[in-house]
Simulated assay, not measured.
Amino acid sequence: MIQIGIGLAEPNEHLIHAVEGAAAEGTRVIVFAPRSMEPSPGITYRLSDSPESDLIDALMQGQIDGAVRGTLPANSTLRYLRDASGVDHLERIALLETVDGRKFLLTPVGIDEGSTIRSRINLVQSAKRLAEQIGMNRRVAILSGGRLGDLGRNPDVDRSLAEAELIARLTGGDHCEILIEDAVGEYGIIIAPDGISGNLIFRTLILLGSGTGHGAPVVNIDVPFVDTSRATESFGNAIRLAKNLIRRK
């Protein structure tokens, strides 16, 4: 049976319901939580003074097949994951779904990710591999800060347009300008101009636009780890995504 660990920083009924649902689907989920947590009946807990490091250590040592961050703090959890994986940065790609059912991969989504042309080119290649792995459309849309007709109005937009054109040529993607509303659905992979705008796209869709988040796999490490936002209610989606990645790995 596949075993997946998920982090729980404080009581969260959405997360507990997701764990119960996963069990009904044949997946064993272990909840990594602080010692102060009052365990819920019928759920396997692993309590410790540092659930972040305990979750990552269990993943790295093969005690669990995959992990989901759940509601653990992002900074400490991802920093420990980065150090334990031996990489100098983490690359995340979010699987999102609009309210009308259009799914797409979005990257960069971290405010410290995708700030250079090279990093976005690497993310394109990683996103193509992830799309193939989970059976999604591999067409790539490169977004920029405006339309081509806006050239000359703002130097930051001019630079964004030029970078998007270059990335599109080097990766085989299409520069879709600022028209994300046209790109989603036709393209399975959306490359934001930088991590700040990607994070804003994510938050706007999920927290204001009634969209759904399925989690954000970390794609430059060797173990299946799905990042989640503490604001999400869709932990079941992240568990299912982790299970899918484990099976296909």
Rank of each mutant, 00 (worst) to 15 (best):
V157T: 12
E113L: 09
I121L: 03
S126T: 03
V87S: 04
L90F: 04
P39D: 10
E38K: 14
L207F: 11
F104G: 04
L148P: 00
V31S: 00
A9G: 08
G149D: 12
A58D: 04
M37C: 11
G42M: 08
G135W: 06
A33L: 08
L78I: 09
S119P: 10
A24N: 13
L78C: 09
R129V: 13
R46W: 08
G42N: 10
G86V: 03
L90C: 01
R79S: 13
L241H: 08
G213L: 01
P73H: 03
I178M: 11
R46M: 09
A216N: 04
I190P: 04
P39G: 10
D83T: 14
G26S: 11
I111C: 03
H89S: 15
L143S: 07
V223H: 08
I111L: 13
L148Y: 12
K249D: 12
I43Y: 04
D57P: 07
R28Q: 15
V31K: 01
D222M: 06
Q61K: 15
L241A: 05
L241T: 10
S229L: 05
E52L: 03
E38T: 15
E91Q: 13
G86C: 07
E181R: 13
L95I: 06
L205A: 05
Q3C: 10
P224L: 07
I134H: 06
V19L: 09
L81V: 10
M136H: 06
I178S: 00
E25L: 10
V31I: 15
P155I: 13
R118I: 12
A67H: 05
K103C: 10
L95G: 05
P217A: 05
G70I: 03
S210H: 14
D57A: 13
V68P: 05
A84N: 03
T171G: 07
N12D: 15
I196A: 04
T27C: 12
P41H: 11
G211V: 10
E20V: 12
E97W: 04
S229A: 07
L106Y: 01
G146A: 11
D49M: 13
S53D: 13
D174I: 14
M1Y: 08
P155D: 11
E181D: 15
S115Y: 09
F104K: 05
D100L: 12
A23Y: 10
R118T: 14
K249N: 15
I246A: 04
G114H: 01
I117L: 14
V223D: 06
E25Q: 15
I201F: 07
L78Q: 01
I134T: 05
A231D: 11
I201H: 05
E13S: 14
L78M: 15
K128D: 02
V157L: 12
L15W: 05
L15N: 04
M37T: 14
N199M: 07
S229G: 10
R35W: 09
V109I: 15
R248N: 15
T232S: 11
R240N: 03
P193Q: 06
Q61F: 09
